[in-house]
């Protein structure tokens, strides 16, 4: 085991996959000059100069090129500087990448990874802080991956590179520097397998991305209340491991779903509906969602901090379902 940050884990995953497979290449804005804004691709240009492409500021072009290269058998790892800019390439993601396999009756494979730095980082307001997992969860043909730890980040990104279908890979800016243990030997993490990050008896807390760390902290605080929470990290939102969530709710009878994105029509809404459909008889309290209010990200730091769910938000929600 080594202690790595998420940023380093992602960096290592890309290097290892490029080493292993000549069809892997990196494409995106500033990926050479600066290793991307979060330096994840640092060093690749020195090691694999022919397999990294620094692009003009042309997101539709970047993703479009990725789609074509993937259809021709390459494995592009696309970086979109900020998730927010993926809206400039929605056709390429939603109409091209996602539907190719289906529309061609299974002939086409689009092994494309799109890395998406997302969420509140520094305070840079509404066009540089979004989270849009649920937008893409809604599109058949896309896989949505959200790591919360360095170990998951590395294992999931390596799996993403090997996947025969497109992957939207969400990297939360605020946890790039989070540290954790990462195995030294090669490992992959399958999609559609949640991990229970903490076992508990009283409440199932399904937490996405950075909410996992916050939920774990909440778990410690809640011990003083005498509440023992279970924290389930889905790790991939599409495919979604409904079985692990159902089994956990079956055991605890209570569910809190936490995400940093707006709750309205979001990830938590899907999970809550799934729980309602499958675990109605197990539930001892209504399902509660924790998320951002339905507003764009404000600039002023006190405002931004007030809308992003924190440890306290999880604590409050658990107390509510236990009341």
């Amino acid at each position: 085991m080594s202690t790595l940050t998420i940023r380093d884990a992602l960096h290592d995953a890309i290097h290892e996959e490029m080493e292993r497979d000549e069809s892997v290449f990196v494409i995106g804005e500033d990926v050479v000059a600066h290793g991307g804004p979060y330096t994840v691709t640092e060093g690749i240009a020195e090691r694999f100069p022919d397999r990294i492409f620094e692009t003009p500021i042309a997101e539709a072009g970047i993703v479009g090129v990725g789609v074509g290269a993937a259809m021709a058998g390459m494995r592009p790892v696309v970086e979109i500087m900020y998730l927010d800019f993926i809206t400039c390439a929605m056709d390429e993601v939603v109409n091209q990448a996602a539907k190719m396999r289906y529309m061609t009756g299974g002939q086409a494979s689009v092994p494309l990874v799109i890395r998406l730095p997302c969420g509140l980082g520094r305070y840079i307001a509404a066009q540089h802080s979004q989270i849009m997992e649920s937008w893409f969860m809604h599109v058949p043909g896309l896989q949505v991956v959200v790591p919360s730890t360095p170990k998951d980040a590395k294992g999931l990104l390596k799996t993403a590179v090997r996947s025969p279908d497109p992957v939207l890979f969400f990297e939360y800016k605020r946890i790039y520097t989070a540290e954790g243990e990462v195995p030294d030997e090669e490992y992959l993490i399958p999609f559609g397998e949640a991990e229970t990050k903490r076992e508990g008896e009283d409440v199932t807390v399904v937490a996405v991305g950075p909410m996992v760390g916050k939920a774990l902290k909440a778990g410690v605080i809640l011990e003083d209340d005498g509440y023992d929470i279970e924290v389930v990290d889905p790790r991939t939102l599409s495919p979604l491991d409904t079985e692990t969530i159902r089994a956990s709710v079956g055991k605890t009878g209570r569910a809190v779903i936490c995400e940093e994105d707006s709750s309205f029509a979001g990830t938590g809404a899907e999970i809550a509906a799934m729980i309602a459909e499958n675990c109605f008889k197990d539930l001892q309290a209504p399902v509660v969602r924790v998320g951002m209010p339905h507003v764009p990200m404000p600039f002023a730091p006190p405002l931004a901090d007030s809308v992003v769910p924190q440890v306290d938000s999880v604590v409050d929600a658990v107390r509510r379902v236990m009341a």
């Binding site: 290449f25 022919d50 397999r51 492409f53 539709a60 072009g61 993703v63 479009g64 090129v65 990725g66 789609v67 074509g68 290269a69 993937a70 259809m71 021709a72 058998g73 390459m74 592009p76 056709d91 390429e92 109409n95 091209q96 190719m100 529309m103 061609t104 086409a108």
Partner: peptide
């Protein structure tokens, strides 16, 4: 034949991408 495309200009990026693949 990577396909007709229902989106006007939808093939231009991907065709550039197949060209990139073969160049690599």
């Amino acid at each position: 034949i990577l396909g007709a495309n229902g989106i006007v200009a939808g093939g231009i990026g991907p065709a550039t991408g197949t060209a990139m693949a073969t160049k690599i």
